[in-house]
Design a protein around this nucleic acid. Structure first.
Length: 378
RNA sequence: GUGGGUAUGGCGCAGUUGGCUAGCGCGCCAGAUUGUGGCUCUGGAGGCCGUGGGUUCGAGUCCCACUAUCCACC
């Protein structure tokens, strides 16, 4: 299923085979929370952008349109017409991001829907049932993502509960996968490491969940406000305790720099809203730093967002035109910007894989870090 | 032409019985944003308060004239 091809330091170049196709890693998952990449990007577009695997969200699809609806329509792949791998986030992060609307108990979490305010209960079993109805390739464990500022005692108790939840997730998914009418009987479960910024709690947790022999492991609860150096330090300490023969997924990360630094620390898979959300807001990534397209200095700029970029936006359109579209709040402006950013991220991952294949990742990384730090003011 | 209303940053407006460096929304300029509520947040620039007189210790606020504009009526 998962095979390491080459290693350079802690960096890994691997292939991860699933029933929905192979993911070449290091890989970036393009984020389509509600079974769509925001910004009018279709699943056809995703293929053109080089997307290998897409991420959707359990909580959001549960509240709308409802996982039962998607199951009746044949599962998420058929629903959104995407035949490559899909990872569904468990809803655990919403415990954290919608914190003002929730109550956490041993059995699970009581939410208020952000759509209509109605009460929702989600525990490990519910999350697995929803993800089973969606039929994603990879289901994520239902976890709690404690604040990076949380007290040590709280984090300790939270992580213990997350472990108990993980065992319940594993049991429940095994049961669901064996049911006759299940959408994807080969659905995989990834466990999630937590522990905020306490290395000893994280390491202990990593050891514990590794023993459950799941097909993959994620590191959650990072890049939520703590300094970058802290995140890198946690990765240095924790990744060695996760199985090397399984994919390692760093949740919610990150900037191009974060990705380079994390690959060199052994991470295989990433996801982040940056390319899509920032794209919608005119914050564009290039190999030579970011372009804030809404800045006045681009008003008359006839160049593409990035010279030499082969994305659907850069092949045709000028900064001036796309800037105008964003200013006018035309959907096309967002779309073109998101297309560029996702193309950039997917291409960056391809470049990382090529460098690993050629055994020159460290020098590639040094050069790319220098290039990304350029001002792009010209 | 007559009567009445209104004139405050690019636009739309607040400005209490006249009282310290005239506010707000949008827009504009710049910055944040890491398992996405097509958001949200943080800064910044920009105003001789229509013009000219007057009353007062002090006027965006009161008085007069003028100009512009809106409404009603001949």
């Amino acid at each position: 299923m998962y095979r390491v091809l080459t290693v350079e330091g802690s960096a890994k170049r691997s292939v991860f085979k699933t029933v929905h196709g192979t993911v070449e890693t290091p890989a970036f998952m393009n984020v389509g929370t509600v079974a769509a990449i925001k910004g009018a990007v279709s699943s056809e577009d995703l293929k053109e952008l080089g997307c290998q695997i897409e991420l959707s969200n359990t909580y959001h699809l549960h509240v709308r349109p409802g996982d039962e609806v998607i199951k009746k329509l044949g599962g998420l792949h058929r629903f959104m017409v995407w035949d490559r791998p899909i990872l569904t986030d468990s809803g655990g992060f919403q415990v954290f991001s919608l914190a003002s609307l929730r109550k956490i108990k041993e059995e699970g979490v009581y939410f208020n829907s952000h759509i209509d305010g109605r009460k929702i209960f989600m525990g490990p079993e519910q999350s697995m049932q929803i993800q089973s109805n969606l039929g994603s390739t990879i289901a994520m464990a239902f976890d709690e993502c404690p604040s990076s500022l949380a007290e040590r005692d709280y984090v300790h108790a939270s992580v213990d509960r997350t472990t108990r939840w993980l065992i319940r997730c594993k049991d429940e998914l095994a049961r669901l996968n064996s049911l006759p009418d299940t959408i994807n009987p080969d659905q995989l479960l990834f466990g999630i490491n937590q522990g905020a910024v306490y290395p000893d709690i994280r390491i202990e947790h990593a050891k514990t969940i590794s023993e459950l022999d799941l097909p993959g492991y994620a590191i959650g609860g990072l890049a939520v406000g703590e300094p970058n150096e802290v995140m890198y330090d946690i990765l240095d300490r924790v990744v060695p305790y996760l199985p090397k023969d399984k994919p390692t997924y760093l949740m919610g990360v990150g900037t191009p720099v974060d990705i380079l630094e994390s690959v060199s620390r052994g991470v295989d898979i990433f996801d982040c809203v940056y390319p899509s959300r920032n794209g919608r807001h005119g914050h564009l990534y290039t190999h030579h730093g970011t372009v804030r397209l809404l800045n006045a200095k681009y008003e008359l700029d006839p160049r593409p967002i990035e010279e030499g970029c082969n994305c659907p936006c850069c092949r045709k359109y000028s900064r001036a035109y796309v800037r105008h579209l964003l200013k006018a709040k035309e959907m096309l402006g967002m779309r073109l910007c998101v297309l560029h950013n996702l193309y950039f991220y997917n291409r960056l991952m391809q470049e990382i894989r090529d460098a690993l294949d050629n055994g020159c990742f460290e020098s590639f990384k040094r050069g790319m870090l220098a290039s990304l730090a350029e001002d792009n003011e010209k």
